[in-house]
Amino acid sequence: MIKVIYNGEVRETGCSTLLELLKETGVVKDDPRSLFGIAVGVNDEMVPKSRLDQYILRENDRIEIFTMIAGG
């Protein structure tokens, strides 16, 4: 198990990749379109959704999930 900061909260996880973690937390569902409108950042760097399965989680990674909201 490693410890990561997930949307501001400490989380222990056995996942090895970012994609696995997003599946574990329910962000990624079976329908690939479910990721439209969502972006992922780790340690203030955007991780392209096409590479979520290649990103190997490290201790203390700060993972943030972003969505689109109404705005001007």
């Binding site: 949307n7 501001g8 962000v27 409108g37 943030e64 969505t67 689109m68 909201i69 109404a70 705005g71």
Partner: peptide
């Protein structure tokens, strides 16, 4: 039309897209 990027708040956000 414009939209904004925000940190996700799970369980409480309205999907406008």
């Amino acid at each position: 039309v414009t939209v904004a990027v925000r940190r996700a708040k799970f369980g409480g956000y309205d999907d406008i897209l």
